Simulated scan of single mutants.
Amino acid sequence: MPTECLTSASEILSHLDDADPRRFWTAAQFSAPEDVVRLSINGIEALQREGPEIKEAVHHALSKGHGFGVISLKTASEYTDEKLAAFSHRLAAMVGDLMTQTEDGQTFFEVTKSESKHDGERRLSMSAGDTSLHTDCSYGDNRPGAISLFCLHPAKRGGSSILVSAYTALRQYVETYPEDLAPLAAHYPYYRSHVQYAGQPTFGIYPFVEIEDAALSVRYKMPYMIRGYREAGLDIPDPLERFLHRFEAIVSSPDNRVDMRLARGDFLVASNSWILHNRTPYQDAPDGPKRLLIRHWIDGPACPLQA
């Protein structure tokens, strides 16, 4: 391990050469807030009337744009948390079919700080500290085509969402390290963390890069790839460790990322195939509500619109 993938390094290079230039974005293209694709909706009741236009714009952003967009509910302060949570479910279901995120079939997940642990470990999404750039469910078969995050309560400080284009990162990697492309076209063990179901091993073996429906599909989370080798009872090969550190340095560069601090009522939707995401550390107010986002997984590699 790693083993050769069905998508070869030459196919990846060819795809990068032919891909839509809008997918190769950097931080410089989003120097002002208005540079981000952002739609406004005035009231929960307006969703039924404005829904078709919003669906079309979101689909365009995911499949033909920069791979992400934000919908802002301007009147969010007028609604209770319960009404906003229900609104978030409607928005996500409008984009595509909602996928289950738990073994009991729940289709949403509350992203907030918690002291609860699984097998002695706390999920990174339930901490307030550093996390790492990743695509969701890189370690599983139920990988969503897109993710959404709806903000109920922002943190007092920090907690910004970070997005990075895998197209940009891969092109920078192949231009910088043209002699070391083999790791791009390989399968790796990914640690399943806290989500392995009954009877599953603690790691799954998947390709780092595939080409699906004429788009890149990247599975990435550096800590889980390293942990996956331990779970498989294997030492990490030196070429893989070198590759991971090189790629992590590229995706972590401030020049390649967009930082967005979501406000109450903001709905961020992003491709999970080629947009890596993360968040900055944060601090909650001691006497106020904790940072709380509602996450949905949405089906489809290109996140097609529902009929």
Rank of each mutant, 00 (worst) to 15 (best):
M1R: 02
C5K: 09
L6Y: 13
A9E: 14
A9Y: 03
E11M: 15
S14A: 09
H15V: 01
D20S: 14
P21I: 00
P21R: 13
R22L: 14
F24I: 06
W25C: 03
A27P: 14
Q29P: 10
E34K: 04
D35T: 11
G43K: 07
E45G: 03
A46Q: 12
I54V: 13
K55W: 11
A57Y: 07
H59P: 03
K64D: 09
I71E: 04
I71V: 03
A76R: 12
A76I: 08
S77G: 12
T80G: 06
D81V: 10
E82M: 04
A85L: 14
S88G: 13
H89S: 14
H89A: 14
R90K: 13
A93V: 08
T100I: 11
T102E: 09
D104Y: 10
G105S: 09
F109Q: 04
E110T: 07
V111N: 10
V111Q: 11
K113G: 11
E115T: 08
S116A: 13
K117Q: 12
D119N: 13
G120Q: 02
E121A: 11
E121C: 09
L124G: 14
S125T: 06
A128H: 03
A128R: 08
G129W: 02
D136M: 08
S138G: 07
N142Q: 11
N142V: 08
G159I: 04
L163F: 03
A166M: 07
A166C: 05
T168E: 10
A169D: 01
L170D: 01
R171F: 01
Q172P: 08
L181N: 06
A182N: 12
P183D: 05
L184D: 04
L184W: 05
H187I: 02
P189I: 07
R192C: 04
H194P: 00
V195F: 09
V195A: 11
Q196I: 00
G199I: 07
G199D: 10
Q200H: 13
T202G: 04
I205M: 10
V209L: 05
V209S: 10
E210K: 15
D213S: 15
A215I: 09
S217M: 11
S217C: 12
K221T: 06
M222C: 04
P223K: 01
Y224P: 00
G228F: 09
Y229P: 08
Y229L: 07
R230H: 05
E231S: 02
G233I: 12
L234A: 10
D235L: 12
P237H: 06
D238A: 11
R242K: 15
F243A: 11
L244A: 13
R246N: 12
A249N: 12
I250C: 01
V251L: 06
S252N: 15
P254N: 02
D255G: 07
N256I: 05
V269E: 01
V269A: 01
A270R: 08
S273T: 15
S273G: 14
W274S: 08
I275T: 09
L276M: 10
H277Q: 03
N278P: 01
P281Y: 02
Y282G: 04
A285E: 13
G288F: 03
K290Y: 10
L292I: 00
I294D: 06
R295S: 09
I298A: 00
I298K: 01
D299W: 10
P301M: 10
C303M: 05
L305K: 15
